[in-house]
Simulated assay, not measured.
Amino acid sequence: MKNIHLPIIVAVLFLSGWHAVVRMSGSDIFPTPWEVVLGLAELIQKGVLLKYIVASLFRVTWGFLLAILIGVPFGLLLGWYRPLAAAFNPMIQIFRPISPIAWIPVAILWFGITDVSPIFLIFLASVFPITVSSMAAVQNMQPVYVRAARNFGLNNRQLFQKVIFPACLPQILTGLRIALGIAWLVVVAAEMIAVNSGLGYLIIDARNAGKRYDLVVAGMVMIGLIGLILDIAVRRLEKFDEVRWGYANKD
């Protein structure tokens, strides 16, 4: 991996600064990096860490996949059929700014303290960015693609399958990347309130159980690392030939 030494240097400087600030402050509550490592080791030894990571990823996976299955086709239709966009866009713009966190009481009322509640919240957090990015991708598509396809006699189904979707895929992937980051944020917040497992629950439970801030920060570290891995995974999709053409090449 190119320039791996630069992130390592930044990480070392950050951890050194963190350790120095904690020591100089004389705090016996906020942990040092090494204490966080020991906290992670404790969670691994108890078999809790993997269990909570799997629970969080399970909820994000289902909520995010449902958002893709609904948001991408619906966004493409809205972008292609202007009367449909005129009908639905105002409602989308009303619901889109509402924080998914505001839906937590409603989710608990409808689904109770179950996995369905955070999945529903993740779906809400993801579906609007995905829909809007898919719609914008169609609207920003070069008209020459459509004219060329029409000249070759493609029908509407073939046009969507062979021209519109491939042309929109780079911008759709950008929307998916943004939506996935939002989904990961929301699942952590939802798990602090709506369920009794997952990394969000780990943080709030560690704070309540004797103020174990080493475990609190350990949970935060795992959230950040998994978020980084998820972002890298989505960016890997941009390397495929079907998508790469839509991005500017920068050396």
Rank of each mutant, 00 (worst) to 15 (best):
P100F: 00
P100R: 02
I70A: 11
S99W: 08
I68K: 02
Q93V: 10
L76G: 01
G71R: 01
P73F: 04
Q93Y: 12
P73Y: 01
P90T: 09
A67Y: 01
L78G: 00
Q93C: 04
I92R: 07
I70D: 09
G75F: 00
L69K: 05
M91L: 15
I70S: 11
P100N: 08
G71C: 02
L76Y: 10
Q93A: 08
R82D: 12
A86N: 15
F95T: 05
P97H: 12
I68A: 09
A85P: 07
P83C: 10
I70G: 05
F74P: 05
L65D: 10
L66Q: 12
I68T: 09
A85C: 10
S99Q: 07
G79F: 00
W80G: 00
P97S: 12
R82A: 11
A87Q: 15
N89T: 13
I70T: 15
G75N: 04
P97Q: 11
S99P: 12
L77K: 04
I94H: 06
Q93E: 14
L77V: 08
I70C: 09
L84Q: 04
A87I: 15
L76T: 10
F95W: 11
L69T: 09
R82Y: 12
I101A: 04
N89G: 03
P97W: 08
V72E: 02
P100E: 05
L65S: 09
P97V: 07
L65R: 03
I101V: 15
F95G: 07
A87T: 15
I94V: 13
I70Q: 02
A86R: 14
F95N: 06
G71V: 08
I98L: 14
F88L: 15
P73H: 07
P83V: 13
A87L: 15
L78E: 00
P73Q: 05
A85V: 10
L76S: 05
Y81H: 08
F74K: 02
A85G: 07
F74A: 11
I98N: 10
P90I: 05
L69P: 05
N89W: 04
L84Y: 03
A67C: 07
V72Y: 04
I92N: 09
A86K: 13
W80C: 01
I94A: 11
P83Y: 06
L65H: 06
S99M: 08
I98C: 11
A67K: 01
I98W: 09
G71E: 00
V72F: 03
L66I: 15
I70Y: 04
M91D: 08
L66S: 09
P73R: 02
L65V: 14
A67E: 01
Y81M: 08
Y81P: 02
N89E: 15
S99T: 10
W80K: 06
A85N: 04
S99R: 06
P97Y: 05
I92S: 06
W80Q: 01
V72K: 03
Q93G: 02
A85M: 06
I70R: 04
G71T: 07
I68N: 13
A87R: 13
R82M: 10
R82T: 14
I68L: 13
A86H: 14
I68P: 03
G71I: 04
I94R: 05
F95R: 06
G71N: 00
L76Q: 07
A86E: 15
G79E: 01
L78V: 13
V72H: 03
M91I: 14
M91S: 12
P90L: 07
L65E: 11
